[in-house]
């Protein structure tokens, strides 16, 4: 029973979602919207699990003095101070509040966001410029027929605005983006769609059980 019950629940909730798709009646809409709200709320609770895991792994590293344990102290310090700022506020001379107001508007929370999160995030993102160049370099050493096709198409599209080649290259690049691209995307989309549909169906019917740890 312990093992079967979750799969019955999977079947019922999955079958309802399929059912509601064809039934526009108000009562079906009503339940549907409730279920969607529930999903978000459960997700909110799950955050605790994640934070707990992060704290545990970091604490474990520090306690056992594993390699690079000092950096875990920084992780925990960042985590706890950000949480502290996120649930308190002392703005505008209203006194000090815990949980009651404007945690996300706490000036320190905003500073951490502006001067720690944003710069690192933007820089990580900008690393893409280097990596796409190194990936392009990797592609340029293509040996097989298939890889050469990829390279050729990439070159044509990359050079599409280059005046040295004349207008035809832009036409060819646009054609590549509009025609073979459309065909391949469609083939992939159909395959993917069927793959997803099949997996979803296997989940609803209880054939696919790997995600419950019994696979």
């Amino acid at each position: 029973m312990r093992r079967q019950l979750p799969f019955i629940l999977v079947f019922l909730s999955g079958a309802f979602m399929v059912f509601q798709y064809f039934v526009p009646h108000e009562s079906s809409e009503f339940v549907y919207e409730f279920l969607l709200d529930w999903l978000t709320i459960i997700g909110g609770f799950a955050m605790v699990l994640g934070i707990w895991s992060l704290i545990r792994v970091s604490y474990d590293k520090i306690q056992r003095k594993r390699e690079n344990w000092g950096y875990s102290v920084i992780t925990l310090a960042g985590l706890f101070s950000m949480i502290f700022f996120g649930i308190t506020n002392w703005q505008d001379g209203f006194g000090f509040y815990i949980l009651q107001a404007d945690g996300l508007n706490n000036p320190m929370f905003v500073h951490f966001f502006d001067y720690i999160l944003i710069p690192i995030q933007a820089t990580m993102f900008s690393l893409l410029a280097f990596f796409i160049a190194s990936a392009a370099y990797r592609a340029f050493r293509a040996r097989s027929v298939i890889a050469s096709l990829l390279l050729l198409a990439a070159l044509i599209v990359m050079m599409r605005f280059n005046p040295l080649f004349g207008a035809w290259i832009e036409d060819v690049a646009n054609w590549l983006m509009n025609v073979p691209n459309l065909a391949a995307q469609r083939a992939i989309v159909i395959g993917l769609g069927l793959g997803m549909v099949a997996t979803a169906l296997k989940i609803i019917l209880g054939i696919e059980r790997g995600y419950m740890g019994q696979g």
């Binding site: 796409i132 160049a133 990936a135 392009a136 592609a139 298939i146 890889a147 096709l149 990829l150 390279l151 050729l152 198409a153 990439a154 070159l155 044509i156 599209v157 990359m158 690049a173 590549l176 983006m177 073979p180 691209n181 065909a183 391949a184 995307q185 083939a187 992939i188």
Partner: peptide, 14 residues
């Protein structure tokens, strides 16, 4: 055709 497409969208993103 898949590879041509991947190349084209790769080039497009660069």
């Amino acid at each position: 055709i898949l590879m041509i497409t991947f190349g084209a969208s790769f080039g497009y993103t660069v």
